[in-house]
Amino acid sequence: MAPLLIWLLSLIIIPHIDMFILSLQEKVAPRVYETGFSNYAEFFTEPLYWNTFARTALMSILATALTLLIGFPVSYYIAKMVRGRVRMVLFLLCMIPFWVSELVRTFGWMILLRETGVISSFLQYIGLTDGPIEFLYNDVSIMVGLVYTSMLFMVVPLVTTLDSLDNSLVEAGYDLGGSGFRVLRKIVIPHAMPGIVSGCIVVFMLSLGNYLTPVLLGGKDSLWFTEQIYTQFITRFNWEQGSAFGFLLLILSSLIVWAGLKISRQTLSNTMG
């Protein structure tokens, strides 16, 4: 217990207290500070920041939903339809992209999607298009990058929970007259719910906290809240504002996760347990 407490205290709690106090410093003029909530107020009064957060949250929710939609059949296939070697190979396929750094993965997408990139060149080569096409620098490319980056974190908890689903439950679902859809809705999904929820939480948080993917793939219109925090800290030297944004991100993302748990009627303990 003691090492855990020391770890929590020194690496999580103390820095956060530090950051919270910092976030309450209002910069009135150079070298003049007052204590107050204006850094927080700034977030709500300046539509730019508020909109950036809303956009980041919505995009992350969408990325989470897409990851779930693609990840669920993949996980079901891995957990239930294949055995032994094939299963290991498929699982490895999901994992291989994570053997290289996120930066390299993102550059990989840039090479594929850019105007002079692989896909555009290929389309011109086979004559589907006359001129180069820019696939990069838009919200779709951000979404592709986020889903790709998050896939493993959805597939792993899903495969684990689906694996623990007794096949006879599925068979019983059919045997008692259920259609495939009904079995999925009444038996498979309720059983997989803890995995779905924990996968979604992880993917949502990863997307929300992602920095590289939106910045590199999003281009000029990409706005991501973490980018805003980074900017405040590193290029604006406005640590006070950055800390306040950091706290707002923590609080608002926790609220969204809480709301998600309420809607899906799950509790954090049975999701993580």
Partner: peptide, 20 residues
């Protein structure tokens, strides 16, 4: 001079956020 980078920062944020 101290202070003008805060002004510039907001302008840059707004340009980034503007729709193209």
């Amino acid at each position: 001079p101290a202070g003008i980078e805060d002004l510039e920062g907001k302008v840059l944020d707004r340009v980034k956020a503007a729709s193209s």
